[in-house]
């Protein structure tokens, strides 16, 4: 059903109305997310295959990750998902101030997530558990070359996720500016919906990364 906001601006010429345009935008975003699913799916599948082949060493390597920081970060990201969803609702019902505040909180939570992630990487760097760019790798345990494989997956998966987070934060900041201007409410409604879908998808990816990397440790 068209809301008061979506009726205040005109659709692009190829669409009959703004609702049709919103449905097309959402559909396009889902097609994009399907390609992202396969990108992360291939990485996660590769990890699972090696996890099955080297169960003991991968579990031992996983116990070197910070479960407390990882859990806090997961809670932060899930909370940002809530505030993004609430912000979408506020935008579509014309509550501009609420939408702005909620989206700002989401951005702060996203930045906090990245800061904690960078701090985790720094700890792993100081413990010489960062086998990238020729840095020394010293693993206190057997089969250190297999542990190195675990940490290669760890940096690849968390790094790729962080890149998506940064892109998502950029999208949220653009929407925040659009809400501040509020010149085209119909357009902001569509952007908030599509940007929200991307952000929630990044949450889903993190749930699986967290489970596979941090939780499977014995």
């Amino acid at each position: 059903m068209p809301t008061m906001n979506t009726m205040t601006s005109a659709p692009a010429e190829q669409f009959d109305d703004l609702d049709q345009q919103l449905r097309a935008d959402v559909m396009g975003m889902w097609v994009f997310l399907a390609t992202e699913m396969l990108l992360f799916g291939s990485l996660l599948t590769g990890f699972v295959i090696f996890r099955i082949q080297h169960a003991a060493v991968f579990a031992d390597a996983a116990s070197h990750l910070g479960l407390k920081l990882g859990s806090i970060n997961t809670a932060i990201l899930l909370t940002s998902g809530l505030t993004v969803a609430l912000s979408e609702q506020a935008v579509s019902s014309g509550r501009r101030r609420s939408a702005f505040s909620l989206l700002l909180i989401s951005i702060v939570l996203g930045v906090t997530f990245l800061c904690i992630k960078f701090y985790e990487w720094y700890i792993e760097y100081t413990e010489e558990l960062m086998p990238v760019l020729g840095l020394p790798f010293r693993f206190k345990g057997e089969h250190d070359h297999v542990a190195e494989l675990f940490f290669n997956f760890y940096y690849m998966m968390t790094g790729l996720h962080a890149v998506h987070m940064i892109a998502g934060l950029g999208v949220l900041m653009v929407i925040l500016m659009q809400i501040a201007r509020w010149s085209e409410p119909g357009r902001v409604t569509r952007q908030a919906r599509i940007g929200g879908l991307y952000w929630h998808f990044v949450d889903v990816i993190w749930v699986f990364i967290f489970t596979l990397l941090y939780l499977l440790r014995s």
């Binding site: 899930l78 998902g81 809530l82 993004v84 969803a85 929200g196 879908l197 929630h200 998808f201 949450d203 889903v204 749930v207 699986f208």
Partner: peptide, 11 residues
């Protein structure tokens, strides 16, 4: 289950 909740409610 967590992914299903995000897909159905948040998305």
């Amino acid at each position: 289950l967590m992914a299903a909740l995000i897909f159905t409610v948040f998305m």
